[in-house]
Amino acid sequence: MDTFRRICFFTALFAAAVLIFGTAIAFVSGKAEPGTALRKKDPSPEVLEKKIQPGEAVFSHVGTIRCSTSDTPPVPLVITPYFRYSAEDRAFYEELTQKVRKIRLIIGEYTEQYTRAELLRRGEEKIKNDLTDLINRELVLGKIENLYFSEYIFFE
């Protein structure tokens, strides 16, 4: 039993040394980029509803969209978009409700055009602006101004 404990101890010690040494090399070599995948989170739809002007509402009925990138193999991506609209404009609300599937399709097709690295390089604000323009091209009765993401997550 004493030999078994020694083997376990030295194996654990070796594994810990490899992890510490590997981490140190990654940081010293400059290949480690801590925090690059972090993003400034948008306010949640509930928080945004509390801050909006009277007569405005938040449209969050698009829901969570599971899409992928053009990488090989594709990198899964989850986006949950929402935006403000005029609460008094019932016709625009109905158009938005009817075009939820189209909005989801636009977002999925957009992400499939780019790799994960390209999307990260473009930046979240550029992606939001591009998607806002694409969605507004489909809308007839009104336009959205700002697109928000409550989720924007790459899975690896």
Rank of each mutant, 00 (worst) to 15 (best):
G22E: 01
A24M: 10
A26D: 11
A26K: 09
V28S: 10
V28G: 07
G30S: 09
A32F: 04
P34A: 07
G35C: 05
G35L: 05
G35I: 09
T36R: 11
A37R: 09
A37Y: 09
L38C: 08
R39H: 09
R39C: 03
K41Y: 02
K41I: 12
K41L: 11
P43E: 04
S44G: 11
S44W: 00
P45Q: 06
E46H: 09
V47R: 11
K50T: 14
K50Q: 14
K50M: 09
I52G: 06
P54C: 02
P54W: 03
P54M: 03
G55W: 00
V58K: 02
F59H: 06
F59M: 11
G63L: 08
T64N: 08
I65Q: 03
I65K: 05
C67L: 09
C67E: 02
C67M: 10
C67G: 12
S70G: 04
P74T: 14
I79R: 00
P81H: 02
Y82F: 15
F83N: 03
Y85W: 09
A87C: 03
A87V: 07
A87T: 04
A87H: 00
A87E: 01
E88W: 01
E88F: 05
R90H: 06
A91H: 01
A91C: 00
A91P: 01
F92R: 08
F92S: 10
F92A: 10
Y93E: 10
E95W: 00
E95S: 05
L96C: 06
L96Q: 06
L96V: 14
T97Q: 05
K99C: 10
K99D: 03
R101H: 08
K102W: 04
R104C: 15
I106E: 01
I106T: 13
I106C: 05
G108D: 04
E109N: 15
T111F: 01
Q113M: 14
Y114W: 10
Y114L: 10
T115D: 04
R116P: 01
R116S: 08
A117L: 07
A117G: 07
E118A: 13
